[in-house]
């Protein structure tokens, strides 16, 4: 059953990724694009976890965790840069 469900889930997440990229290209403002990237990395993380279930391997866990941490740091850095023109204050 999982063999049928996981491709469906991957397709749904792929649709979500397309919508994110559309918003990333359309903008219209910089915070919109940062928000689109933020959503995009969370979706990528979900795809990686699904792929791990599909291949029945635990190895992708570290990748998913690293994407979560680095994506958060990137979003906060971009937001701080927008706020004050400087990342470290």
């Amino acid at each position: 059953m999982l063999d049928y469900v996981i491709p469906i889930c991957l397709a749904l997440l792929g649709g979500a990724a397309i919508l994110n990229v559309a918003r990333l290209i359309m903008g219209p403002s910089v915070p919109d694009r940062v928000l689109a990237l933020d959503t995009f990395y969370i979706n990528a993380l979900a795809v990686i976890i699904l792929f791990g279930i599909w291949l029945k391997t635990d190895l992708f866990f570290e990748a998913a965790l690293l994407i979560a941490v680095m994506g958060f740091v990137g979003t906060i850095a971009a937001a701080k840069h927008l706020l004050s023109g400087d990342i470290i204050d």
Binding site: I8, G15, A16, L19, L35, T39, I42
Partner: peptide
Amino acid sequence: SLFALVGAIGLF
């Protein structure tokens, strides 16, 4: 997956 798609639709 459905909720992730709903979030992206909202973003769009």
